[in-house]
Design a protein around this nucleic acid. Structure first.
Length: 360
DNA sequence: TCTGGGGTCCTAGGACCC
DNA sequence: TCTGGGGTCCTAGGACCC
């Protein structure tokens, strides 16, 4: 038995990341309601990527239609999404975390898990916050947990600019009476299906008969939700490089497409872009998927495995266009998406598959 | 309120094979 | 005649996350 320091998972989450990056390069925006979304034009079909805390006071949040957000906050500053700027800021943050000597598992632009062995995780969390602020002028919150599920959920209680610890010992005290939708991996659909079994709170989910959950959600998801209710999850922080399984391009058209010719041309264009994304990875495409959203809100997908994996642009475009040929020619198309899935490199799949984001 | 764009994983059901 | 049972592959669709 070794008596070394305890292993902890820290979840680092930047506060209002995108809005904060925008304010950094435009200091005159500090304190004003800032909304970032689409091309920054609230008359277009687009949604909010991030709102500053000042804008959130008006009830604006990410995912909300930009048009509606603009109506709620008449004097908001509305900015276009500038992905390269956020990528650069994100890399600076992640490099700073790695510089602390911890194992870093990147989850997205603005969040990461880090694995540490220490007897004072709060002190380390404050060191993380100070280091990130010093290097990037960005504020973050840190969740401390004995696994990734609990660390991730803990961060919400620390926001903004704070630290919160959530472990097996405090799980039910903190989460027991909260609705299941507060869990990472439970959304509106699943929470409603759970309610159909009279499961409303995290404690009720934890106490539920696993066989009932398996009957409702299947062998994998049923077991997964049961564990989620008890806060159980992996504590392994994995810093191996992310390898995308596929790439996709989607476009919502400002005006619906009405003819098969328009649809075919648009699909060809998207497929060509997706091919450019995949060819950079140096792996061949083995399946192509077409996603169509008709007006008002009805989605269909069509997928085809290719006869053999291919690295030819024409094969990918032809496959996508052929799928487009199976669509109903009389419906108006609002959104098109083309996805190409790639064959994994030699050595197979490096990532253990789990239901949330593949990495939890 | 009327719903972006980039991802991941899971499930049901049909086809096919022995 | 009125048709088993298990395994695997494939497609369509659903759900969730940032």
């Amino acid at each position: 038995m070794s008596a070394g320091p305890t292993h902890w998972v820290l979840h680092v989450d930047l506060d209002q990341f995108i809005a904060a990056v925008e304010v950094l390069r435009r200091p005159e925006l500090a304190g004003r309601p800032v909304i970032v979304g689409g091309r920054g034009d609230p008359t277009e079909r687009a949604v909010v990527s991030t709102a500053s805390y000042e804008a959130r006071e008006f009830g604006v949040g990410s995912g909300m239609p930009l048009r509606l957000a603009a109506r709620k906050v008449p004097d908001a500053v509305i900015l276009p999404v500038d992905a390269p700027a956020y990528t650069e800021a994100s890399e600076h943050v992640m490099d700073t975390l790695r510089g602390l000597g911890a194992v870093v598992e990147v989850l997205g632009w603005d969040e990461a898990f880090i694995g540490v062995d220490t007897d004072d995780p709060e002190a380390l969390a404050e060191r993380v916050r100070a280091a990130v602020l010093d290097a990037t002028q960005l504020h973050c919150s840190v969740g401390i947990g004995d696994n990734k599920v609990r660390a991730k959920i803990a961060t919400g209680f620390g926001k903004p600019r704070g630290v919160f610890r959530l472990t097996r010992d405090t799980w039910f005290e903190v989460m027991g009476d909260r609705p299941t939708i507060d869990l990472w991996g439970v959304g509106s659909k699943v929470s409603k299906r759970l309610a159909g079994h009279d499961i409303h709170t995290v404690r009720e989910l934890a106490d539920a008969d696993e066989a009932v959950l398996v009957g409702e959600f299947g062998p994998r998801m049923g077991v997964w939700y049961s564990q989620l209710g008890r806060g159980i999850g992996s504590a392994v922080v994995d810093d191996s490089p992310w390898i995308a399984r596929g790439h996709s391009r989607e476009t919502t058209y400002q005006r619906n497409l009405t003819t098969p010719d328009e649809v075919r041309d648009a699909v060809g264009e998207l497929a060509s872009q997706v091919f450019d994304d995949t060819v950079r990875e140096g792996r061949p495409v083995f399946r192509v998927t077409l996603k169509v959203r008709y007006a008002p809100f009805f989605t269909q997908t069509r997928a085809r495995k290719l006869a053999a994996p291919t690295s030819e642009r024409a094969d990918v475009v032809d496959a996508a266009v052929a799928l487009a040929g199976t669509l109903d020619p009389d419906r108006e198309v609002r959104l098109l998406g083309v996805r190409a899935e790639m064959v994994m490199p030699e050595g197979g799949d490096p990532v253990e598959r789990t239901p949330v984001r593949g990495r939890l």
